[in-house]
Nucleic acid binder design. Sequence first.
DNA 1: CGCACCCTTGACAATTGTCAAAATGCGTGG
DNA 2: CCACGCATTTTGACAATTGTCAAGGGTGCG
Lengths: 252, 252
Amino acid sequence: MKPVNDNAQGLLALRLSAHLPFGRSEHELLTGVPWRTEEMAARHAFIREGDRPTHSCLIVRGIVVRSQYGADGQRQILSVHIPGDMPDLQSLHIRSMDHDIETVSAARIAFVTHDDLRRLCDASAHLAAALWRESLIDAALFRAAIFRNAQLGAEARLAHFLCEMQLRHAAVDLVIDGGFDFPMSQELIGEVLGLTVVSINKAAQALRAQNLIRMEKGRVVVLDWDGLVRFGQFDGSFLHMEQPQRPLAAAS
Amino acid sequence: MKPVNDNAQGLLALRLSAHLPFGRSEHELLTGVPWRTEEMAARHAFIREGDRPTHSCLIVRGIVVRSQYGADGQRQILSVHIPGDMPDLQSLHIRSMDHDIETVSAARIAFVTHDDLRRLCDASAHLAAALWRESLIDAALFRAAIFRNAQLGAEARLAHFLCEMQLRHAAVDLVIDGGFDFPMSQELIGEVLGLTVVSINKAAQALRAQNLIRMEKGRVVVLDWDGLVRFGQFDGSFLHMEQPQRPLAAAS
DNA sequence: CGCACCCTTGACAATTGTCAAAATGCGTGG
DNA sequence: CCACGCATTTTGACAATTGTCAAGGGTGCG
């Protein structure tokens, strides 16, 4: 297991080829695309509702969230994105953004122009399908969120969310010693799960009390994967990974 | 305003060309695809979690919902689909279904093979993009549902949902006399909004009391579009229609 | 040192769920 | 045509969950 690739081409190629392994020509097309990488501060909304982006982005390092605002300013976080994700692929085919995208922690984000992506898709229906698939997985995350927020109580909701995070981090080799770095405050997690800080805090304590997780500032460790899965009624199949439904758990 | 097209090719061509108008060759490709149409009874789950479909479907008549089940059998409806929608386009690129698709009312559903769709996409990157776009709109509906269910109280939630339904029905000319046929029971609406029948019932009464809607069995009429929009904090831009953000309201 | 920011805790309020039962409407068969 | 049964809508009393408000404590950083 090498450390995670922190170069945009590599990350993307790895990701796309995971499900539809492709040939040399596609690989060359992919690595030929120019990326512009940018370092960003925490809490920076770099795409806003109403924007008409000309680029899509790929997260290389850090955490990024999509959010939508209500009439009286309440924020709902629609999804949480980690390295390897392309959270605004949709802007390739939908002109205008219907939500914001912003960093949580400091982050490194790579940008590619829509024109380049379109060239890629025109040149290879195979690559187009792979990118399309990525956007479909994104939709699957949304479905899971709808289920979670509507059907689970506060504690199970948090458990479900942490299961998802653990699995997605594992998929990009970001699970180390049974856990992952996670710079979201409880307040932010509340905005993901549709709960207040207070409820998140109590839920977190409940999960800790049952020895399911450890949750310190900036880091989450899953102590009992099976238990957490059961508790959160988590069924990871919506992530549609070929791989290890089960993250190499076991904390020290 | 003609009556809605009830032929699959026509519906799809209309839908796809709305945003990316395309040429004669694409039109021919599209109309060359063979569809198999099927009449279905109400409450029939014709695609199930775990299935690996070889076809995608288009709703010609009737209402269809996606649903996912929790550990103890509770159902969450993830989205509601009306004529013109292709609710399982994703199965084209994601092998295994992570949810069920079932009819609410009796429905006419048209099926097309994945192979045919893939041929279409290979033949025209333009058509591929149009189909991709459809799946992205689907994702936008999910986002709206996440926002709605987490941020709005019961009454506003119902208002928001009805706004969405009105607009989507309007987009396929299914708004007649200011309303649309809607065979979902309050129980089912509850499963969409993450509320119980009791809450839906009370919310419906509240909206009726304010003269925002009429809601009889099998039919919804929007009496005061602007009021309903305000009440439900509804912003229809997530539907990404070019057209009339405002459905030809006005009931008799 | 002091200021943010975050986590934690407690008392109380508000919303929604649960349970139960009555009322309404619709289709079917007698 | 009417009666019956079934699904759906409606209502009310009560319980449970979560939100709100407020305050205290910890930690890191300038």
